[in-house]
């Protein structure tokens, strides 16, 4: 009796494990099979296999020159504003030269260049450490356009990507982001985020799919050039050919796709 009860419990346990695995198997197997409808790139979508950006820092003299770009970005994407520095969310922001490029330390650099505001954002690296770190593929390098994308529906908020990013480009929603937004000023076309997920610049992938340039590029009056790094005839490649540019912490091998003309 003793042993048969025990065997029953064991079998029941194994069965329970098997049953609990079923939804997982289903979820993996349930690829969309409906052949009658499809999803594709829109007719207006801009196509590029590795988007990249060149920022001409010579065109930004003071804070007032960069503020409209930051505002355009944060307005477009409903980036909340919190006065508590710990809860801050930043997609695009300005900083000093020695903060943007801490590895290019030069005590006697051009005063004019030193005092310019430098725009920093996610570099959409070709070899992104954050993507390597993410345990759920919630952040990933999109094959179709090279953008380092965040899947907000999948992020578990472990913040490993924030530790992995050498550029401090990622922010975490420490609280409900809607508390840092004014309802009337929100962009209803773009979602907000929920508390407990990581976010960052998305190279305006939602605008690219509608044939629009990123919000900051549009607001920069030509000071930022955006285009396909793989296309030798693109505007970005032309600007890179004609100007000397630097990238943030290029020694780390992350291959940033944001270039700076200094």
């Amino acid at each position: 009796m003793e042993s048969s009860r025990r065997r029953f419990m064991k079998m029941a346990g194994i069965a329970a494990v098997g049953l609990s695995a079923q939804p997982v198997i289903k979820a993996v197997a349930a690829a969309p099979t409906n052949g009658t409808h499809s999803l594709q790139k829109g007719p207006k979508a801009l196509i590029g296999s590795q988007w990249a950006m060149v920022i001409d820092t010579r065109r930004f003299k003071t804070e007032r020159d960069v503020a409209p770009l930051i505002e355009a970005c944060h307005k477009t994407h409903n980036v909340p504003h919190f006065s508590d520095r710990r809860h801050e969310i930043k997609w695009l922001w300005e900083t000093h030269f020695h903060n943007a490029f801490p590895d290019i330390v030069n005590p006697h650099m051009s005063e004019e260049a030193e005092h310019r505001p430098y725009l920093v954002l996610c570099n959409h690296c070709e070899n992104p450490p954050c993507v390597r770190a993410c345990p759920t593929k919630a952040t990933f390098k999109r094959q179709s356009d090279g953008i380092v994308v965040m899947d907000m529906h999948r992020c578990i908020g472990c913040r490993f990507c924030m530790a992995a990013c050498p550029y401090g480009a990622r922010s975490f929603n420490f609280r409900d982001p809607r508390q840092g937004l004014v309802e009337k000023e929100m962009n209803p076309q773009y979602p907000t985020r929920m508390k407990g997920v990581v976010e960052k610049c998305n190279f305006c992938s939602e605008r690219l799919s509608e044939g629009l340039m990123p919000a900051c590029v549009e607001a920069s009056k030509g000071a930022i050039v955006f285009g396909d790094l793989r296309d030798p005839n693109s505007e970005v490649r032309r600007v890179l050919r004609e100007n000397f540019t630097i990238r943030r912490k290029s020694g780390l091998g992350t291959e940033p796709c944001v270039y700076y003309i200094v």
Binding site: A133, P135, T136, K137, I156, C158, F160, V197, V198
Partner: peptide, 26 residues
């Protein structure tokens, strides 16, 4: 402690649902 550190604990099992061998956390 890992669990209480998660921002979205309800999605914790995503680690199993989308196994990612290139992540040390996995």
């Amino acid at each position: 402690l890992i669990f209480v550190d998660l921002g979205q604990p309800m999605r914790g099992l995503n680690v199993m649902l989308y196994p990612t061998p290139n992540s040390v956390l996995f």
